[in-house]
Design a protein around this nucleic acid. Sequence first.
DNA 1: GTCATCATGTAACGTGTTACATGATTGC
DNA 2: GCAATCATGTAACACGTTACATGATGAC
Lengths: 170, 170
Amino acid sequence: MSLRHALLGLLSERPASGYDLLKLFETSLANVWPATQSQIYTELTKLAGSGLIAVAAEGPRGRKEYALTDDGLAELRHWLTETTPQRTTRSDILLRVFFLGVLRPDQARAYLAELTEMSEESYEQLRRLSDSIDWDDGNLSVYGRIALEYGLRFNAMRREWAEWAAQQIT
Amino acid sequence: MSLRHALLGLLSERPASGYDLLKLFETSLANVWPATQSQIYTELTKLAGSGLIAVAAEGPRGRKEYALTDDGLAELRHWLTETTPQRTTRSDILLRVFFLGVLRPDQARAYLAELTEMSEESYEQLRRLSDSIDWDDGNLSVYGRIALEYGLRFNAMRREWAEWAAQQIT
DNA sequence: GTCATCATGTAACGTGTTACATGATTGC
DNA sequence: GCAATCATGTAACACGTTACATGATGAC
């Protein structure tokens, strides 16, 4: 049920169309909660149906700009304060580690080297992103920055772990 | 398509029934790839249908013990060496961080404090698990240990990050 | 004999992915 | 006029969750 809340969250900053939201997902939210075009449009229709958002303006090419309603803001706050996030995250990457024993040691090391590289790349990409953003805005800047810092620390940790792990394989 | 490979991976160690596999998921794989009973039984039927596993023995109470076939092992190796894992992981926990601006600062700090606590608990739980396992086995022990070390480092990182983040909120 | 555990299966529903389908506007 | 981009919608399918349903066996 989180796509719904991601949309409510983005709309809490400012009104936006499905197309705008798609772009926002591709840029800011892509790393924590990817969503496809079809998913976004379908969910927006449902949210409007249940009164959590409403069409605030219409533009050219059938553009519909949605805005958060009072009910929508209440639901967003409820989600943030009254519900606990899921502790378990599925990780394709970690799952493979369990089964590296069916490969030759050099193949297993190659996999871990790939992870090292992937973590480095992600780290650098986030660094560049961090440099390109102007951190003058209000709330979204404070919390966006905190999320970005998480990404940096996460990738640094993963890189070090993958290097350590490769050394464990004899 | 990873549940399929998780099952093939577990069966590469030794033959097992659906019930055995369910228990293995609950203990060893729960942290990286949770799966439900219904999902496991359905997938086993499909895997047997496509010849990647086969019923090797039948026991009391309709117990069916599955074993990996040659095709199944080939598929497992193919997955490990020829396919790249998904870089994007959905994180409920991080998603919320983006929207903490709609809450009061004390509520936002409370959320981050919750994350600190959650990370500590997970860390301790993994520590205990690490102490309780005898690390004498072969492959599964080497790679199981590497995965566990990841969990420890991850939770330590997240804890420090959450503490840092709480201080950023004025 | 009864309770816990072993053991499997299916149906309904929700969420996510891929692909198809259509068309308006703006810039050049 | 033509191409890029803006803009929305739906259908088919895969994957995951919850709940229901049933029954055998072993330990006490």
